[in-house]
Structures are given as C-alpha cells and as structure tokens.
C-alpha cells in the first residue's frame, strides 16, 4: 500500500446493546481506490462501515472506543461535528432508497442545497447534471428529471442514490452491499460505475460476495467475527491468501 491512506482506523471497538460487534479493528484505506470489506453475514462489516461516517449515532445503546480518522479529521473526537464528517463521506445503502416523496432532481439536489454547496439555481442544475452523468444515469433521466424517483427501475434507483451521494462532492463513498437487491444486468452496470469512481474519490465497499470483491476491488479486507483477519491487494487475497478462513471463504467453502 504505497499510496497515502485517507481513512485510518485504530483499535475500533463497538458494542451495541452490550454485545461486542467490532473487537478491535485496525485498517488503513489508501486514496483513490476501491477498498472492499468482505465477509460472511454477521461479521460486523456493516457496523464497521457505519462507524466511518457516524451513522451509528442513530442507533440506541451504542458504545464506541478507538478512533477513525478520515482525511485528517478524527471522527470520534468530541470536538468533531458528525455533520462535518458526513460531508466528507457519502453513503449508498443496501436497499435502493431514493426519497419516495421527492423527484429525481430533488433527490440529487437535496444534500447540496441544504448544505449550501452551490450559490445559484444554475450551479445547482449543473451539479445535479454532473452527478447524474457520473452515475451513468443522465441519458436515461434527462427528459424526466421532475418525475417521482420511485418511477425508476431498481438499478436506476440505485444509480440515483450514487448520484445523490456524489452530488455532495465527498472524498469517500461508503457502499453497503449496493447490488444485493439488483438483477445481474443492473449489478454489472453498478460494478462498472464503482471502478470508474475511484478516479476521483475513494470507495469503501461492503459485500459478502467474493466474486464481486474480486471483480471491482484494488484491496480487500476479510472480516470475520468482528475482526479483520487479512488485508491485501486483490491478487494477494484471491491467489495466495495467508489465512485459512480467507482461503475457505474465497474458494466458496465458507459463507
């Protein structure tokens, strides 16, 4: 890992409702790459992802120790505003979740507008267009920007959600199993997009699917029972894994 890390996680421990979900995670995520956290369900990868932008704050009974540093900002420093962190770090979820009461345009414009990232309506229009183009969606929706977002197909909705995250101009984008509810065609389109995104930001992807991890990642971390068992480049993890469990997982004997 030669490049500078944009995310550094130091001995992160998370307890939810008294149960230890993350048992001391250490991780460095380099800039401008696709970094995949792979592991079976229940291994804590979703919780790890949610601790990076403090979405965990929404849950009751959460205790966090250790720290996460994103782009030099200590996320769990009491002086750090979670809103500031969420400006740096965008997020895409498992369920394509455009806000159903908003139009396509409004879904993308919401974040930048409230966060005053633009000065004028024209700038906002341009930003929305830019984000939709980057999400490979512009051509499909440019004539119906003002119809409700729920009219789109599942794959289009998920790309809209990516555009919505991109419009905030984040440095990092977190993706929590973004294709698990999509068909194979929509999935491959999103995977193509994920690879493209690393040209201007860092993608942290969570998946339980080793094939997806091998297709899109630069680096892979294998997570099991609240700890990271192994981290390496995609080649290292898939061709010469050091850990027994990693090997079992990537060869389909576990998971």
């Amino acid at each position: 890992m030669s490049r500078d890390p944009i995310i550094i996680i130091n001995d992160l421990r998370v307890r939810i409702g008294g149960k230890e979900i993350l048992k001391g995670v250490n991780l460095k995520v380099p800039k401008n790459c696709v970094f995949t956290i792979m592991g079976p369900s229940g291994s804590g990868k979703s919780t790890l992802l949610r601790s990076i932008n403090r979405i965990l704050d929404l849950y009751d009974d959460v205790e966090v120790s250790g720290d996460v540093v994103v782009d030099g900002v200590s996320v769990y420093d009491p002086k750090t505003d979670p809103i500031y962190v969420r400006r740096l770090v965008g997020m895409v979820f498992q369920i394509p979740n455009p806000l159903p009461h908003l139009t396509i345009y409004e879904n993308v414009a919401l974040g930048p507008k409230i966060n005053r990232l633009v000065r004028s309506r024209r700038e906002l229009d341009e930003l929305v267009r830019w984000a939709l183009e980057k999400a490979y969606l512009w051509d499909e929706v440019k004539d119906r920007l003002h119809v409700p977002a729920v009219k789109l197909s599942g794959g289009q909705q998920q790309r809209l959600c990516i555009a919505r995250a991109l419009a905030m101009r984040p440095k990092v984008i977190l993706m929590d199993e973004p294709t698990s509810n999509l068909d194979p065609v929509a999935t491959s389109k999103i995977e193509e997009l994920i690879i493209e995104l690393k040209n201007y930001l860092t993608v942290v992807l969570v998946t339980h699917n080793p094939f997806q991890a091998s297709r899109v990642s630069d680096y892979v971390a294998f997570m099991y029972d609240g700890t990271i068992l192994e981290v390496g480049s995609v080649d290292e993890i898939f061709t010469k894994p050091k850990n027994k469990y990693t090997e079992m997982y990537v060869t389909g004997r576990m998971g």
Partner: peptide, 8 residues
C-alpha cells in the same frame, strides 16, 4: 440513515 448521511 440516508437523511443523516446527507449531512442534515
């Protein structure tokens, strides 16, 4: 979660 993630 999505509302919070948009820095609202």
């Amino acid at each position: 979660e999505v509302l919070a993630s948009l820095a609202l």
